[in-house]
């Protein structure tokens, strides 16, 4: 019996191949973050940030052909991508606007920014693509609605470059949103 078990283990060991080690990516701003007291905006706050359900998965996404998207099995987000997007947009909007724009739950600002990220993935021709919408509302009344659709070429081969390109696109989106934040009557 012992001999048979040993023989089976040897056979299985022979069939086993070399495993691939997964890599985890974290999307965080490269700019320096210093310790300071935050100065929340009195006019604007971040409301809901929604991402398309196909984006909300562990693997990074590449559009291999028209309408075909493949999620990487060994190149994964280090945290739920929703958190990364929310964090990146909050920081980049505040930075572009020049004031700290906090989530609506922490702010009493009158105007709330709601964002929906519709597409965020790499393309087969070496680019990152971001499509998003945002709208400004006061209470239940929507004041204005905007759209953002941009692509950015990868700086190098590989998933790190894809993450960097997607992060850059999110910062562009943050700047675009900040440009639309105008206090009525100002």
């Amino acid at each position: 019996m012992k001999v048979a078990s040993l023989l089976l283990i040897v056979l299985l060991a022979g069939c086993a191949s070399q495993p691939i080690e997964p890599k985890f990516y974290l999307m965080r701003s490269q700019q320096d973050i210093v310790s300071r007291q935050l100065n929340p905006s009195e006019d604007f706050s971040i409301g809901t940030v929604v991402i398309a359900s196909y984006i909300d998965q562990a693997g990074l996404l590449i559009e291999t052909s028209n309408s075909e998207v493949r999620a990487a099995r060994y190149h994964l987000w280090a945290e739920p991508v929703y958190e990364s997007v929310h964090n990146e947009l909050t920081l980049s909007i505040g930075r572009a606007k020049g004031e700290d724009i906090l989530p609506a739950t922490l702010s009493n600002a009158k105007t709330v920014i709601d964002i929906r990220v519709d597409q965020l993935h790499g393309t087969s021709d070496g680019k990152a693509k971001l499509v998003a919408y945002w709208w400004l509302r006061q209470g239940e009344d929507v004041i204005s609605v905007y759209q953002f659709a941009e692509e950015k070429a990868l700086a190098a081969d590989g998933y790190s470059a894809l993450v960097a390109a997607e992060e850059a696109l999110l910062q562009q989106l943050g700047s675009a949103i900040a440009a639309t934040l105008v206090v009525p009557g100002s």
Partner: peptide, 17 residues
């Protein structure tokens, strides 16, 4: 689960030529 096959590597994003 018992006999793992050869892992298929992910496609690598490449800079457009």
């Amino acid at each position: 689960a018992i006999l793992p096959s050869d892992p298929v590597p992910d496609p690598i994003p490449e800079v457009s030529k």
